[in-house]
Design a protein around this nucleic acid. Structure first.
Lengths: 108, 108
DNA sequence: CTTTTGTTTAACTATTATGTTAATTAACAT
DNA sequence: ATGTTAATTAACATAATAGTTAAACAAAAG
C-alpha cells in the first residue's frame, strides 16, 4: 500500500480524523485528553493512536506516565503535496465549471 | 462522518487509490479499463467505483453500454484545502526541523 | 511498600469490508 | 430474434476493524 494511501486510511475513520483535528487545533496532548472527541473508552483511543502512529500521522513523546501525542507535519504536508500535484487538473476543471454556471445564469 | 473523512476513507484502500490515480493521469475511462490497476475481478472494480462515487470522489457518465468514470475536481481540491488550512502549522514545524538539521550538520 | 493515575495489551464480540463466482441487466451488432 | 460486449447486482465466504471489559504495566505520590 502506498504511503499516502495508508495515511488516507488512517484519516478515513471519523474518530481518528477527530483526534487529528483536535491535535492540530490544540497542539500536543496526552492520550487521556483525546477521549473527549467522543464517548469512547481509553483502550479504543489508544488503539486509534496506534493506527495513526503506524501510518506516520502522529508521533508520541513520553512524559512520566503520560503519552503526549502530536501531528507529524510531514503527514499533513504530504497530503497537500499530493493534491497540489494535480492542481492543474482541478483548477482548470473548476474554472470550466464556473464558466458554465455564469453562462447559465446569464441565459435567464 | 465528516465529508472529508469519507473522502479519505474512500482513498484509504490501495485499489481505490490506484483507480483514482489512473483516472487523474489518463482522464475519463470506462470501468473495464480500470481492471488493469491490479489482478481483480470486474465486480470488485465495480464495487470500488460505487464506494468512490458515494464518497463524491468520482462521477459516472453513461455512453451506450459503457460507464465512463472520472475524478471530481472538487474532491481533490477539498483535500488540498484541508491541508492548506493547516499550512501555518506544518510550514513552521518543518522549518524548525530543517534548522535543527542544519545546526546538527555544522556540529561535526 | 501501597495506592493512584495514565495508558496500553489481552481476549473476545459484533459489524463492516473485500473478494469470488454466478446470475442479471443493458445496449449494440448480426 | 440472438449473440456479444460491458457492467452491475446477488449470494456467499473470509478477513479486517472497532468496540467492550478485564488485566497488566509504568511512574508518581502518599
Amino acid at each position: 500500500m502506498s504511503n499516502l494511501s495508508s495515511t488516507f486510511a488512517a484519516l478515513g475513520d471519523a474518530t481518528r480524523f477527530a483526534i487529528v483535528e483536535k491535535l492540530l487545533q490544540e497542539g500536543e496532548l496526552p492520550a487521556g485528553e483525546l477521549r473527549s472527541v467522543g464517548q469512547i473508552s481509553a483502550p479504543a483511543i489508544s488503539r486509534h493512536l496506534k493506527v495513526l502512529r503506524k501510518a506516520g500521522v502522529v508521533e508520541q513523546r513520553i512524559d512520566a506516565q503520560r503519552r503526549l501525542y502530536s501531528v507529524r507535519p510531514e503527514a499533513v504536508q504530504a497530503i497537500g503535496a499530493w493534491s497540489m500535484s494535480y492542481r492543474d487538473f482541478w483548477q482548470k476543471s473548476l474554472d470550466r465549471l464556473e464558466m458554465a454556471l455564469i453562462k447559465e445564469s446569464k441565459k435567464k
